[in-house]
Amino acid sequence: MCPIAVHGWDELDMDAACATMRAVAFDLDGTLARSRKPMDAAMTERFAALTRLLPVAVVTGGRYELVVSQVLAVLGGDADLSNLHLMPTRGTRYYRWRDGDWRCEYSFDLSDADRARAMDSLERHARDQGVWYERVWGERIEDRGSQLTFSALGQQAPVELRERWDPDNEKKNRLAAAVAADVPELLVQPGGTTSVDISLRGYDKAYAMRRLAAILGIGVGQIMFVGDRMTPAGNDYPAARAGAIAVRVSGPEDTLRLCDAIIQRLSRRGA
């Protein structure tokens, strides 16, 4: 078996990667934008430019409505929406621009029984581990249909608090492991800065990469996936395991520089 390669954005052989890639996929929070914040103006400009050069996907644990507020709402009219692929809730849902609107092409939802068992386990273990706080900002457990998401500080917690809560991922990893033991038939993974995500087993960012490759008629190895959580325990790592060109960034500032390098080379290739 070939070793799984993850490249730092500033270590990648950019010429070789751009010669191979036929699509680029991005994580959202911590990659394109800060947690639950819209892409800034510079990122929006580069993101739109990429859609005019090749297929672009957003693959995130967040729900579709967050993709709308963080990405779609700030895109101008110069983006090629027909080249944009939206894969929220870890790719358990897929949206395309068709006939002047965004349409859900597929959705793999949890059953009522799975949802009830998972929610009970989340609350019980979060209380036992001391991460079920009295004061939270917004929903603590959000039902996204195809995914349940536990947010320790609440869905609307200030970004500065979320980023400080679990910098080494120890709290999320411990909670995810405890819940996974209760619901082995489901996929339980650490999510964003304060979250644990639960979905049907077999549907993660590896599945999203394979499904995107099939939709585009290319190989998984021709997709570059860019994410900030590329360690083996991170929620972006399954994309690397699937065989995508896996690129690690530490935040949107790195992603911006990476986009500039890609745009420069692909624009030259198309000239």
Score class of each variant (00 low, 15 high):
residue 78 D to K: 01
residue 78 D to F: 03
residue 78 D to M: 02
residue 79 A to F: 04
residue 79 A to S: 14
residue 79 A to E: 04
residue 80 D to P: 02
residue 81 L to I: 01
residue 82 S to M: 15
residue 82 S to E: 12
residue 82 S to N: 13
residue 83 N to M: 12
residue 83 N to T: 10
residue 84 L to E: 00
residue 86 L to N: 08
residue 88 P to K: 02
residue 89 T to A: 14
residue 89 T to I: 10
residue 91 G to D: 02
residue 91 G to Q: 05
residue 91 G to L: 06
residue 91 G to A: 10
residue 91 G to E: 04
residue 93 R to N: 15
residue 93 R to W: 03
residue 94 Y to P: 01
residue 94 Y to W: 13
residue 94 Y to C: 01
residue 94 Y to I: 02
residue 94 Y to H: 12
residue 96 R to S: 11
residue 97 W to K: 10
residue 97 W to C: 08
residue 98 R to F: 00
residue 99 D to K: 02
residue 101 D to K: 14
residue 101 D to L: 14
residue 101 D to R: 15
residue 102 W to S: 12
residue 102 W to M: 07
residue 102 W to Q: 06
residue 102 W to H: 07
residue 103 R to W: 08
residue 104 C to Y: 03
residue 104 C to R: 10
residue 105 E to F: 02
residue 106 Y to L: 07
residue 106 Y to S: 01
residue 107 S to G: 10
residue 107 S to M: 12
residue 107 S to C: 13
residue 109 D to E: 15
residue 109 D to W: 09
residue 109 D to C: 07
residue 110 L to V: 14
residue 110 L to F: 08
residue 111 S to Q: 15
residue 111 S to A: 15
residue 111 S to K: 10
residue 113 A to I: 12
residue 113 A to P: 09
residue 115 R to P: 04
residue 115 R to I: 07
residue 117 R to A: 11
residue 117 R to F: 04
residue 117 R to I: 00
residue 118 A to E: 04
residue 120 D to W: 09
residue 121 S to G: 14
residue 121 S to Y: 00
residue 122 L to P: 05
residue 122 L to Y: 11
residue 123 E to H: 10
residue 123 E to M: 09
residue 124 R to A: 09
residue 125 H to K: 10
residue 126 A to V: 12
residue 126 A to W: 04
residue 126 A to S: 08
residue 127 R to F: 06
residue 127 R to I: 02
residue 128 D to H: 08
residue 128 D to L: 13
residue 128 D to W: 00
residue 129 Q to D: 11
residue 129 Q to C: 11
residue 129 Q to P: 04
residue 130 G to W: 02
residue 130 G to A: 03
residue 131 V to I: 13
residue 131 V to Q: 03
residue 131 V to A: 05
residue 131 V to R: 02
residue 132 W to T: 01
residue 132 W to C: 00
residue 132 W to Q: 01
residue 133 Y to C: 07
residue 133 Y to N: 10
residue 134 E to P: 08
residue 135 R to P: 00
residue 135 R to F: 09
residue 136 V to M: 03
residue 137 W to G: 00
residue 137 W to R: 10
residue 138 G to V: 04
